[in-house]
Design a protein around this nucleic acid. Structure first.
Length: 317
RNA sequence: ACGCACAUAGCUCAGGGGUCAGAGCACCGGCCUCCAAAUCCGGAAGAACGAGGGUUCGACUCCCUCUGUGCGUU
């Protein structure tokens, strides 16, 4: 059976993924699936830079604003939801275009990662976090050493989050965490994915765009939006959104607005850097390197050519 | 106006009469398989220690003056 086609567009924040995604979807008869760990939640539309209705230009967008902020979403759920959407869109004879900055989500779908079938065990996880705090990471690390020595080589003692996760899987499934990873690495990718990456030729240009965009968001009413979300009570993952957590000190009257704004810009820049680190190691990505005055027209034409070239290669196989 | 503090890296701050004055943040790179806009690791670079004078074998460290900043008082 022939694999389904999937177009993937990744890149750092503020690189222009949204616009390119819509443009390519228009040209290639596609629908957009968002791959963004924050846009998945309801609310905070401006803060998380969700595409506005007019930006969508009639192209259907999926997996945006579908989870209440009181709930915690996860990659595993994303993979399953995105899989469904890909099926549906393909069944309609259209091209699924997965667009987003959450590299983990993108890669997990593209590589068909099978997460351990058991449901997450929040109480076990909480217990482990508690132990990490009271007994110290070293104790957990020693325990993991016995259950999955290979995982220990990859995980640093100070990295509580990963340490807990690895232990959690080992304890609940009775199998080493590493075993799941090995299975996944050897499994066949489920889609015929064409992956594009967006970046700017100069880091400074990207940073300038980020800084400007933060001001634009504020002009668009970000502060009010955050205030509302704050008053409603936002916790968990959604509360970690850049822009949200940085404005809280201002709302609590603990710091000046300008300081908070500078902090949003800084955190966004650092985030972009981490995103680039993630995407860079993916050898499958075809990079579109932009510079300051590029027009969306030329970019999408370039992208289209790239896609055609890759498709040709696939045919000849 | 008077009194008291402070003045050290781009920023916040340690330090101390005698080896090349330190750290955190920022910056750069990396890890990443169920919170990933999170978590974590590594690296490079960066300061004639506000200015001027004095004490001393030797001061960035002690003293004086000036400048700047902050706080307090009438």
């Amino acid at each position: 059976m022939k694999k389904q086609k999937l177009l993937v567009i990744g890149g750092p924040t503020a690189s222009g993924k949204t616009a390119l995604g819509v443009e390519l979807a228009k040209r290639l008869n596609g629908e957009v699936i968002s791959a963004d760990s924050m846009q998945i939640y309801k609310g905070l539309d401006i803060t998380t830079a969700k595409p506005a209705p007019e930006e969508m230009q009639g192209i259907p967008h999926h997996l945006i604003s579908i989870i209440p902020r009181s709930q915690n979403f996860s990659v595993a759920e994303y993979v399953s939801l995105a899989g469904q959407k890909i099926q549906e869109i393909s069944a309609r004879g259209k091209l699924p275009v997965m667009v987003g900055g959450t590299g983990l989500y993108l890669d997990s779908v593209v590589n068909g990662i099978q997460f351990s079938p058991e449901q997450e065990d929040l109480s076990l996880r909480q217990e482990l976090f508690g132990r990490a705090e009271t007994e110290g990471n070293a104790v957990l690390y020693q325990q993991l050493q016995k259950l999955d020595p290979e995982a220990c080589e990859k995980i640093h003692v100070n990295n509580t989050v990963r340490l807990v996760r690895a232990l959690e899987v080992c304890l609940r499934t009775g199998k080493p965490f590493t075993e799941y990873k090995k299975q996944n690495l050897s499994s066949e990718p489920p889609y015929q994915a064409i992956q594009l990456g967006l970046d700017y030729a100069s880091r400074q240009e990207l940073y300038d765009r980020i800084n400007r965009r933060v001001f634009n968001m504020l002009d668009a009413g970000m502060l009010e939006e955050v205030r509302q979300a704050y008053e409603e009570g936002t916790v968990g993952t959604a509360a970690a959104a850049i822009g949200y957590k940085e404005l809280i000190p201002y709302l609590k009257q603990q710091s000046a607005l300008d300081d908070c704004i500078a902090m949003i810009q800084q955190e966004s820049r650092r985030y972009a850097k981490r995103q680039l680190t993630w995407f860079r190691r993916n050898a499958q990505i075809q990079w579109l390197i932009l510079s300051k005055n590029d027009e969306l027209q030329e970019i999408s034409e370039k992208a289209e050519k790239m896609i055609a070239k890759i498709e040709n290669l696939c045919y000849n196989e």
